[in-house]
């Protein structure tokens, strides 16, 4: 195996183009586990952390562009991100331990394409867009469209994610992410739910995006859940409809982390709880 740490996107793209079996290294918290367990044996590792901009969080069009190598800890320490997208920040902060936070990235969490990735439902709810670079140039792709199934992404050979854009936050909007794990830390999500919504002056929902993780082969954007609360105040009836829509939309499997019945039920529970938090944030309350 070889290791390269190019200093420009162009170099990185060229290096990747010359090595079909290469893997991109950003935070490495998934890649090194796979290397160690001999699940992968790449000829080349391309470390993108030394490329300019990869470790930066920059304002853009009212939102934030987050470089592919920005760690969870750096996201958690960023005042602007915390103010605008607390749900995404919390989701990123749930990936692994403090130690993992020192390295893990949003882009890596997305490219790992695990259905249970914590940051992905939050990013999908937020309407995040990935900027992809590759031999054919640069393209933008909505985060929801990046994962294609467990371990599979829409990235073509030689492409990698350079950054992720969280859009401008609309007025009276808030987001939240909750996940269920058996312990209080260190587990993979059994169910995850990201909610982003906007309210009118009367507290009625004017826009909503609800995304579920770990209950299907990839993250699920539940339109029916958003529709269930559109135009309504987040009262008990609306929240129950939201929960029911999420439970219905979930298509989970039984595995070592949870059962179908459990995941379906908890998808609704988390959606309701996350919506309450997002709603409070939209109203400018601390939550």
């Amino acid at each position: 195996m070889r290791y390269e740490a190019p200093s420009s996107v162009e170099d990185a793209v060229a290096t990747l183009a010359g090595a079909p079996g290469a893997h991109v290294l950003a935070g490495g918290t998934d890649l090194l586990v796979r290397l160690r367990s001999e699940m992968i044996e790449p000829d080349l590792i391309v470390d993108i952390k030394r490329i300019k901009g990869m470790r930066e969080i920059a304002p853009e069009a009212g939102g934030w562009r987050i470089g592919a190598a920005v760690s969870g800890a750096e996201i958690g320490e960023h005042e602007g991100l915390r103010a605008d997208w607390p749900g995404v920040v919390e989701a990123a902060g749930l990936i692994g331990s403090t130690q993992v936070q020192g390295r893990a990235t949003l882009a890596g969490n997305l490219c790992n394409a695990s259905p249970a990735a914590d940051s992905v439902p939050a990013m999908v709810a937020a309407g995040a867009v990935a900027r992809i670079v590759g031999p054919e140039g640069t393209r933008d792709l909505a985060v929801i469209d990046v994962p294609k199934g467990p371990g599979k992404t829409a990235l073509a050979r030689g492409e990698f994610i350079a950054s992720i854009l969280l859009p401008a936050k609309a007025p009276r909007s808030g987001d939240a992410y909750l996940r269920f794990i058996p312990r209080t830390e260190m587990d993979i999500a059994v169910v995850g739910c990201g909610v982003s919504l906007s309210l009118d002056e009367e507290g009625r929902v004017t826009a909503a995006r609800v995304a579920l993780g770990a209950v299907g082969p990839k993250v699920i954007l539940v339109d029916a859940a958003a529709e269930a609360i559109m135009g309504r105040a987040l009262d008990e009836a609306a929240l129950s409809d939201l929960a029911a829509a999420c439970s219905k939309a979930a298509t989970p499997i039984d595995d070592k982390r949870g059962t179908v019945a459990f995941r379906r039920h908890v998808a609704g529970v988390l959606a309701r709880r996350a919506a309450v938090i997002a709603g409070a944030r939209a109203k400018g309350e601390q939550a």
Binding site: Y3, A5, L25, G28, T29, L32, V33, R36, I45, D47, K49, S71, A73, G96, S97, T98, Q99, V100, G102, R103, M186
Partner: peptide, 24 residues
């Protein structure tokens, strides 16, 4: 990266040294 026994700091940031390449 699940046990933390290999914790070190790199440029002041706490990490698991098992989840980082020496080359990095």
């Amino acid at each position: 990266g699940d046990c933390g026994a290999c914790s070190v700091t790199v440029d002041g940031r706490l990490v698991c040294s098992c989840l980082m390449l020496g080359a990095e």
